Computed example of a mutant assay.
Amino acid sequence: MSVLIVIPARYASTRYPGKPLVALKGAGGASRNLIERSWLAAGEVRGVDRVVVATDDDRIKDAAEGFGAEVVMTSSDCVNGTERCAEAHTALGGGYDIVVNLQGDAPLTPHWFVEDLVKGLQSNPQAEIATPVLRCDGAALNSLLADRKADRVGGTTAVFAANHQALYFSKEVVPFTSEVYGDDAPTPVFHHVGVYAYRPDALAAYPSWKAGPLEQLEGLEQLRFMENGRSVLCVEVEAKGRAFWELNNPEDVPKIEAMMAQMGLE
């Protein structure tokens, strides 16, 4: 099956304007912007036929082409990454069996997260969309709770059924637990990893649907699929000792840089 990775990136982020061009220092002190680090992460994924950056901003286009990425210009009317991926797939002439949305704010995404995601969609023909979930340890859960306590929108959590079909995604920490966990202890909370794999038909239909009340309240694009009765598969992935966090707020920059230093990522 042919696989396309699209890295959607926009400059005019409400929470963090210019985020794709924010510089992140690696373990050796080398500074690369966020979109380049996301592109490098995409390049490590095996079994992929093509990787493109999709944007509506010339500053991001110039930066991406400067480090060798293929860029697809998309409309400024795209309200989220899924709409941008749908437009990019169409602009490229379609024809891919699976389209992966590797959002440009997750440079620490390990290649096996995406590989396991694609395998999960391939092995579940009834699923139209798949997304990874990572069980939080106590340290990750405490980071999520600290963001909410400080009134920051941090990571997203997911709850799903026994068959791994998604039940809900939220920027609140769900499910609720009052238990205190040690840093390395497993918890019942799953961090939603902001990567998606779509079948082309579901992706093409997405922009034609209006954003529902849940999507508007949470600001989570994947809820539009669920509000339109589409099945979203949660694929549980393993960290394998690798730290993971997404860049949602300026406060996340030093946290991600520290994680890169710890892992020896240049």
Rank of each mutant, 00 (worst) to 15 (best):
L4K: 00
I7W: 02
I7R: 06
P8W: 05
A12D: 15
P17Q: 02
L21E: 03
V22M: 04
K25D: 05
K25T: 09
G26W: 09
A30I: 03
N33P: 03
N33V: 08
E36F: 06
R37V: 00
S38G: 11
S38T: 14
W39S: 02
A41G: 01
A42Y: 01
G43N: 15
R46I: 00
G47K: 04
G47S: 07
V48H: 00
V48D: 00
R50N: 08
V51F: 05
D57Y: 00
D58K: 04
R59I: 01
I60Y: 01
G68K: 04
V72P: 05
M73A: 10
M73R: 15
T74N: 11
D77H: 09
C78V: 11
V79C: 06
T82M: 11
R84E: 06
R84F: 03
R84P: 04
C85K: 03
C85E: 02
H89P: 04
H89C: 11
L92A: 03
G93A: 06
D97Q: 14
N101I: 05
L102M: 12
D105E: 12
L108A: 09
W112M: 06
V114P: 02
E115K: 14
D116R: 15
V118Q: 05
K119N: 11
G120T: 03
Q126R: 14
Q126T: 11
V133Y: 01
R135A: 11
D137Q: 09
G138C: 08
G138T: 02
A140L: 10
N142V: 05
L144G: 04
L145G: 08
D147K: 06
R148P: 00
T156S: 12
T157I: 09
F160Y: 14
A162N: 10
N163E: 15
H164M: 12
H164Q: 14
H164Y: 09
L167R: 08
S170P: 04
V174C: 07
G182L: 11
G182C: 04
D184L: 15
D184H: 09
P188E: 10
P188I: 07
P188D: 10
H191Y: 15
V195W: 05
Y196S: 13
Y196I: 06
L203G: 01
W209T: 11
K210T: 14
K210L: 15
A211K: 12
P213T: 15
P213C: 07
E218A: 00
L220T: 04
L220M: 13
L223V: 03
F225R: 03
E227T: 06
E236P: 14
G241H: 11
A243F: 02
F244D: 14
P250M: 01
E251S: 13
D252E: 06
P254M: 04
P254K: 10
K255D: 13
I256N: 08
A258D: 14
A258Y: 06
M260G: 00
M260E: 08
M263C: 08
G264Q: 09
G264K: 06
L265R: 10
